[in-house]
Amino acid sequence: MMASFGDSARGHPRSRGRAWSGWGSPLLERSRELGGGPDRATLEIIGVICAVAGFFVLGIVLGPVAMVCGWLAMGRSWSGARPVQAVVALVLGAIDTLLAIIWLASATGSGYGMF
């Protein structure tokens, strides 16, 4: 009789022993307990950095990124305790986006068109 490789794993392709599957991983279970995804403090910092950088370059892109990071850092709700940096990221991101839209609208006014 010939023994074949992998007979034991064929019945259970997503066994707990595989490192790539994530099934039964202590890190995956811990991230589910904590709410998953990036840490809120990390999102706050990323949001504030994007908001400040948005005043100088690519405000139309970095403003919404800052708003999303601020919103996710606040826990996707307006109720409860709100971290100051998350609110700063959200507000500055909104100002970035608004200023970028105003700048784009004024740049497409008369005299700057193709015709």
Rank of each mutant, 00 (worst) to 15 (best):
A89E: 02
W71V: 01
G111A: 09
R16G: 08
W103C: 05
S21C: 09
A94N: 01
L27F: 12
A94Q: 01
L92Y: 05
S110E: 14
G11H: 12
R82Q: 15
S25K: 05
V48E: 00
C69Y: 06
R32H: 11
V68W: 06
G36C: 05
S106E: 10
I95Q: 04
L34H: 11
R16A: 12
R40Q: 11
A86R: 00
L99R: 06
H12E: 14
F55P: 03
R76G: 00
H12R: 13
V52N: 03
I102G: 02
M114W: 15
A86S: 01
L90S: 08
P13L: 08
D7L: 10
R76K: 15
G113L: 09
G47L: 05
A81W: 14
G109P: 00
A89Y: 00
G70F: 06
A81P: 09
F56N: 02
W23A: 15
G111S: 04
S4F: 11
A107M: 10
E44Q: 15
T108Q: 09
P13I: 06
P26V: 08
L43H: 03
R76I: 04
V87C: 07
G113P: 02
G6A: 02
R30D: 13
G111I: 04
A73K: 00
W71N: 03
S25L: 03
L58Y: 12
A89H: 04
R14T: 12
V52Y: 03
H12I: 10
S79M: 08
L28N: 15
A51Q: 00
R10T: 10
P26N: 08
A73Y: 01
A41P: 02
G70T: 03
E29C: 06
D39P: 07
P64E: 02
G109Q: 12
E33D: 14
A94I: 01
S8Y: 14
R16V: 12
V65W: 02
R82P: 00
A19V: 15
I46W: 09
G113N: 12
L58A: 15
L104K: 07
S21L: 10
I49V: 15
S4G: 13
G54C: 03
A9F: 12
W103F: 09
I101S: 04
H12K: 13
V61A: 08
L99P: 01
A51D: 06
I46C: 11
W20L: 13
G36A: 11
A53E: 05
Q85E: 10
